[in-house]
């Protein structure tokens, strides 16, 4: 470095300290992405809409629960066509802008010419989108709690114990969260892949939505065709069946393996796509 004492104002007094840790860089990228979700109206609009729609679902759940018994609030909430109707649109909304917008604005160029690897950029975006996805479900924690309050009131007012035992309550809460996190891990990665393939948010959103809809209906093939030799495959990837068993409190490792491996595979694909688009441009 050249030492020039003549213009002290414009010279750094000491050499600039630099850190080149891989995770430190990832953390910086992650925090900025998270700030895009939580620091702009964009993220809050998604959370608000998701909450409003969940409230709508809850209304139907109350109707169902006045007749049926045996399962918790979360079971009826998630095994409800109203829920799936908006659930599959959450992913394109969260991810459609992440890489597409970066490319359209040209800021991807700025990122990739900084000392940052493609993997770090993608992981930063993925983890931020995933964190945001998990944040969407935080208000859902209120539902079992409110249910519990209602139970306590019933017990006090009518002397009937309406609530279950603690372990069952925990399962009622933990199961749905586990499956939502697992599905999210994969679906967010798919959204990121769609976003990496185009510079248009709209196209990215359409691609992701089509994937979500086809994945949802692939899981329901057996309901239309009945059982046939290849049916176990469809049962295996059926998200409605998984949600149904998890929200009953039946935890299963198979969906965990399915979604985590698919998520990793998709993220590897995202990296290939981003690099490929750079090579051929």
């Amino acid at each position: 470095m050249e030492q020039e004492e003549t213009i002290p104002k414009t010279q750094t007094s000491e050499p600039v300290r630099r850190r080149t840790s891989w995770f430190a860089t990832l953390r910086i990228l992650y925090l900025r992405e998270l700030k895009v979700y939580l620091g702009t109206p964009f993220g809050w609009v998604i959370i608000a809409c998701a909450m409003a729609l969940l409230g709508f679902c809850l209304q139907t759940v109350i109707q169902i629960m006045s007749k049926a018994t045996g399962e918790g609030v979360m079971y009826y909430l998630l095994n409800n066509i109203n829920f799936w109707f908006f659930f599959i649109f959450i992913f394109p909304l969260i991810t459609m802008r992440s890489l597409a917008e970066e490319e359209r604005q040209g800021t991807l160029e700025g990122l990739l010419t900084a000392p940052v690897t493609t993997t770090q950029i993608i992981l930063g975006k993925y983890l931020a989108a995933y964190t945001f996805y998990l944040i969407i479900w935080v208000p859902l924690l209120l539902y079992p709690w409110m249910g519990q309050l209602a139970n306590l009131y019933t017990e006090y007012r009518y002397g009937i114990t309406a609530s279950g035992e603690i372990p069952y309550l925990l399962a009622d809460w933990f199961g749905p969260y586990a499956i939502l996190s697992l599905m999210g891990a994969f679906f967010i990665a798919v959204g990121l892949l769609c976003s990496a393939m185009t510079r248009s948010q709209i196209i990215s959103g359409i691609l992701c939505t089509s994937f979500m809809i086809s994945f949802y209906f692939t899981g329901r093939v057996t309901e239309l065709w009945g059982e046939f030799p290849a049916a176990p495959v469809f049962h295996y990837i059926s998200c409605t069946e998984q949600v149904s068993s998890f929200s009953r409190g039946l935890l299963d490792t198979r969906p965990a393996v399915l979604y985590l491996t698919l998520a990793l595979f998709t993220l590897a694909l995202v990296k290939r796509v981003v690099d490929y688009r750079r090579w051929t441009r």
Partner: peptide
């Protein structure tokens, strides 16, 4: 190309950190 939704100081600080500066 710049991030339109960021503030000038915030953007430059972010870029500085990406370039390995810290503290």
């Amino acid at each position: 190309p710049l991030y339109d939704e960021m503030r000038v100081y915030e953007y430059l600080a972010y870029r500085a950190k990406l370039k390995g500066l810290y503290g």
